[in-house]
Design a protein around this nucleic acid. Sequence first.
DNA 1: GTACGTGCAAACGTTTTGCAGCGGG
DNA 2: CCCGCTGCAAAACGTTTGCACGTAC
Lengths: 148, 148
Amino acid sequence: MSDKHMTRSTPEKRPFEDAVSRLREAELRPTRQRLALARLLFEGGNRHLTAEELHDEARQADIKVSLATIYNTLNQFTKAGLLREVTVESGRAWFDTNVSDHHHFYAPETGELIDIDLANIAINGLPAAPAGREVERVDVVVRLKPAD
Amino acid sequence: MSDKHMTRSTPEKRPFEDAVSRLREAELRPTRQRLALARLLFEGGNRHLTAEELHDEARQADIKVSLATIYNTLNQFTKAGLLREVTVESGRAWFDTNVSDHHHFYAPETGELIDIDLANIAINGLPAAPAGREVERVDVVVRLKPAD
DNA sequence: GTACGTGCAAACGTTTTGCAGCGGG
DNA sequence: CCCGCTGCAAAACGTTTGCACGTAC
């Protein structure tokens, strides 16, 4: 086996490989743009972003991506289960890199979203879903306002 | 006390008077359009409507109202506490004539919203609001899908 | 009469789409 | 080489706004 194409696995390299395999598992071709966006999204913990915010981040990181591609990518990632869409406001979609079952605090004035772990919360006595339907997901949004 | 301005309270007359006083209490001038919309909204129990749906209903009832006025009116009614805005989908605002504290089932395919009474549901263990903030409202949305 | 409401059309912000060209496998 | 992806611009969508006119009080 030639080592002509082999590269040493440096610590800095890891995220790149992670992003590649993440995309492959989701059956999405690891294109330049998707890789770049995946790294922005998934490095550095749980994040809540709008399309516009991700676009700005990409620009700041000197990644050339059109807003249309941002939207396409966010929707594809969501469909593939890599992201979760959070609906707290009509007129703006938020995307959450935390795809586990959880809930949110939402502060309208700042647009801030804060995760609430499922372990912290119990919902009892929910009526059964109407006939012919089943529950897909329960979303709890705790709307905040500045304290008096 | 003169009965000069008194009108016999016929069953058909009530809703009109109700709508008038409802608007007066909310400090909104009872104009032709606001009255007509108020009657469409508040007669016949709890309703969940989008602006577009209310506009269509008005057209069918031969009420001439522009879409802009529908939006203005829905927002004014909401601010006045006569309606409640329900956010279940980014890109479309729903208005609920039930302003009491309650939650919703939501069926995306049909756009159907079904009230869940607060009595039926208990939420325990919610973390405290972050510092400097307080909880304004807790919204629970149970997203439905067609049964398998 | 006057302040407020309405209608219309145009502007807005977000999201989607159509199509020519690029690039990953 | 081929099919899927990207970029751009334009369109679509729900919603808001500016301004002239109308109307409740």
